[in-house]
Design a binder for these strands. Structure first.
Lengths: 243, 243
DNA sequence: CCTCTTTATAGTCGTACTGACTATTAAGGG
DNA sequence: CCCTTAATAGTCAGTACGACTATAAAGAGG
């Protein structure tokens, strides 16, 4: 759409900038990691931040998020991965430069590529979630919201498979839950529950995997057709929450 | 924040307008209703649309939504009611005038006031959800998303009480679930489930209500302190969904 | 080669929750 | 006074789930 200043002034009077920011989560070495970039320019130059950037005139926020993700991670095929809108942050003073509204997204990656610094970023890096220090802007809050949302969605959706490679073992799938929730789960019960949920996973017709691991080789599974889990796979009650 | 055109041109190059739109839901005469306005100006003049408007320079989208809601409904106190961000719609062509990104909100009202036409609206009206025809812009989709979200949140949150007046009977609460989900629920089982969930509702120390109704008077309840329901109150499986 | 460790998988048992019912109580209407 | 309506109480069987024990199949180390 062409920029029609007359139409703009007639209705809106004051311009906003719109950005798309991403909380990209993955599991590396059994630990939850998030993709961060070091800002190469003011404001917050030298601070770590979530990757993201301005939405272009011909893009939706989703498209912009996917483009930024490809640019920051060097990932060639970002079409298939899980990208989900988190929420929009629009506090008037969240960016010192001007009025910036950001649409935040959550992305989940199975086997993460090594990122490289992009145009606006001095460098990009996978950072263990627990060691993330204060971030630029309100990105701490965005990241916390993303973590909370992902944790909640694991309960009633098949989202956990988005952290896994195309073929995975039930042990790997369970590990996703344990890492995101920060709790240990009973292995036989987890297995029973997952297999009793139709469409969650399906066994790969081939054989068991033997790669490297000690112990009995595990059966390989693929993500099934189901997107929602009925009944849900609830977190163990952390506090005085009733059973 | 003052409009700094130099900063704007340096970073963003092209202005966006940001609006806040509202899917305001309530239950009237036992039927789910949504608040709609008839547009008083182009584009879509004469078409029905969700209430909403431009976010002002000193407002967050949440603040703008609350202000618009007060203006369109004539509701004096909108501070206490349930307002929740739904998602943001940013397709480049969703508004024929110019580039408009809208942050959509869902609001739930117990006893709805009669709305009145506002500044931009020829008139405002409560419309039964099932009779909503094609709306302006992409508001059909926003409304459908809102309905779906509310239905899902009823399962694992105490959101249903937001549809009810401060004091309500379990029959009224059950009616909220039935109207939003479009399914009938077993009354004794619903009662048992709600009362077994600590913090969902609490009995009002006073007496039972006798007002108008035929049948045995019901005990009055208030919303409890809990916001999430553990375990959730799941919808009856509509299709071939496994128990 | 034998044993220990590790991981996957199989199965058991008792409790809690749920869906489908039936029964009783307390109002109002004719 | 009986019928209808709505709230509330209770029953019962199937299922799900947490906690647990047992077995199987691999590698590591002697």
């Amino acid at each position: 759409m062409a920029y029609d200043k007359m139409a703009y002034d007639k209705y809106a009077h004051e311009p906003f900038a719109v950005t798309a920011d991403l909380a990209v989560l993955t599991i590396r070495d059994g630990v939850l990691h998030v993709l961060l970039v070091e800002r190469g320019q003011e404001p917050y130059q030298g601070h770590w931040a979530l990757p993201g950037g301005f939405v272009q005139p011909d893009e939706s926020a989703e498209t912009a998020a996917r483009r930024e993700l490809a640019e920051e991670t060097g990932l060639s095929d970002v079409s298939g991965l899980h990208l989900e809108q988190l929420r929009t942050y629009s506090e008037p003073d969240r960016d010192p430069r001007m009025r910036v509204v950001t649409v935040a997204f959550t992305a989940l990656l199975p086997h993460p590529p090594e990122p490289h610094g992009g145009s606006d970023a001095a460098q990009a890096r996978w950072v263990p979630y627990d060691t993330v220090g204060p971030l630029a802007f309100d990105h701490d809050r965005i990241l916390a919201d993303a973590h909370e949302r992902v944790g909640a969605k694991l309960e009633y959706s098949s989202l956990a498979t988005a952290f896994c490679p195309p073929e995975f073992t039930l042990g790997e799938l369970q590990h996703v839950y344990e890492v995101v929730w920060g709790t240990a789960l009973d292995r036989p019960n987890f297995r029973r529950k997952v297999l009793a949920t139709p469409g969650f996973v399906e066994a790969v017709p081939g054989a068991a995997r033997l790669t490297g691991g000690r112990g009995k080789p595990a059966t390989l599974y693929r993500a099934g057709a189901a997107t929602t889990l009925h009944p849900p796979l609830l977190r163990p009650t952390p506090e005085g929450r009733p059973a």
